[in-house]
Computed example of a mutant assay.
Amino acid sequence: MAAASPSSTHLVLIPSFNSGALLAETVRSARAEWNPVWVVVDGSTDGSDCPVQAMAESDPGLRLLRLTRNGGKGAALLHGMEAALAAGFTHALAMDADGQHPAEEIGRMMAASRTKPDAMVLGVPVFGPEAPAIRVKGRRVSNFWTDLETLWSGVGDSLFGFRVYPAAPVVALMHRTRWMRRYDFDAEAAVRLCWLGLKPVNIPVPVRYLSREEGGISHFRYGRDNLLLTGMHTRLMLGFLPRLPLLVWRRLRQRAASRH
Results as ranks from 00 to 15, higher is better:
residue 19 S to K: 01
residue 106 I to G: 07
residue 46 D to S: 14
residue 52 V to F: 02
residue 53 Q to L: 13
residue 59 D to N: 14
residue 102 P to I: 09
residue 81 M to L: 14
residue 25 E to N: 03
residue 11 L to Y: 07
residue 88 G to M: 11
residue 81 M to Q: 14
residue 88 G to H: 13
residue 55 M to Q: 08
residue 11 L to N: 06
residue 23 L to F: 00
residue 102 P to L: 08
residue 96 D to L: 02
residue 100 Q to F: 05
residue 101 H to E: 08
residue 68 T to A: 04
residue 26 T to V: 02
residue 92 A to E: 10
residue 100 Q to C: 07
residue 75 A to F: 12
residue 80 G to S: 13
residue 43 G to M: 11
residue 23 L to T: 00
residue 48 S to Q: 05
residue 69 R to W: 11
residue 96 D to G: 04
residue 30 A to E: 02
residue 101 H to D: 09
residue 20 G to D: 03
residue 98 D to S: 08
residue 52 V to T: 10
residue 95 M to E: 02
residue 65 L to T: 06
residue 66 R to D: 06
residue 14 I to M: 08
residue 109 M to L: 11
residue 62 L to A: 04
residue 20 G to R: 01
residue 45 T to E: 14
residue 60 P to Q: 12
residue 38 W to C: 06
residue 89 F to L: 10
residue 81 M to W: 11
residue 83 A to Y: 06
residue 44 S to G: 12
residue 79 H to A: 15
residue 105 E to K: 07
residue 30 A to F: 02
residue 57 E to C: 13
residue 97 A to V: 00
residue 93 L to R: 03
residue 39 V to I: 14
residue 104 E to V: 15
residue 78 L to I: 10
residue 92 A to R: 07
residue 43 G to K: 12
residue 16 S to P: 09
residue 83 A to S: 12
residue 65 L to V: 07
residue 17 F to T: 00
residue 35 N to L: 06
residue 87 A to S: 15
residue 18 N to D: 08
residue 60 P to D: 14
residue 38 W to I: 10
residue 67 L to S: 05
residue 64 L to W: 02
residue 83 A to C: 12
residue 43 G to P: 13
residue 15 P to H: 10
residue 14 I to W: 06
residue 90 T to L: 11
residue 77 L to P: 00
residue 27 V to L: 03
residue 66 R to H: 14
residue 74 G to S: 08
residue 38 W to Y: 11
residue 54 A to P: 08
residue 31 R to N: 04
residue 77 L to D: 03
residue 99 G to D: 07
residue 52 V to D: 03
residue 40 V to F: 05
residue 89 F to I: 08
residue 74 G to Y: 04
residue 87 A to N: 12
residue 35 N to M: 09
residue 33 E to D: 09
residue 108 R to H: 08
residue 56 A to E: 15
residue 17 F to A: 03
residue 27 V to K: 00
residue 92 A to V: 15
residue 69 R to P: 08
residue 53 Q to I: 09
residue 65 L to F: 08
residue 102 P to G: 10
residue 32 A to W: 04
residue 24 A to D: 04
residue 83 A to N: 09
residue 15 P to K: 10
residue 95 M to F: 04
residue 81 M to G: 11
residue 64 L to D: 00
residue 23 L to E: 01
residue 76 A to F: 05
residue 12 V to P: 07
residue 34 W to Q: 05
residue 61 G to P: 14
residue 23 L to M: 01
residue 59 D to G: 12
residue 87 A to Q: 13
residue 90 T to P: 10
residue 21 A to G: 14
residue 72 G to P: 05
residue 51 P to S: 05
residue 43 G to I: 12
residue 74 G to A: 10
residue 87 A to V: 13
residue 31 R to G: 02
residue 67 L to V: 04
residue 71 G to T: 15
residue 98 D to A: 07
residue 60 P to C: 14
residue 39 V to Y: 04
residue 44 S to W: 13
residue 88 G to V: 13
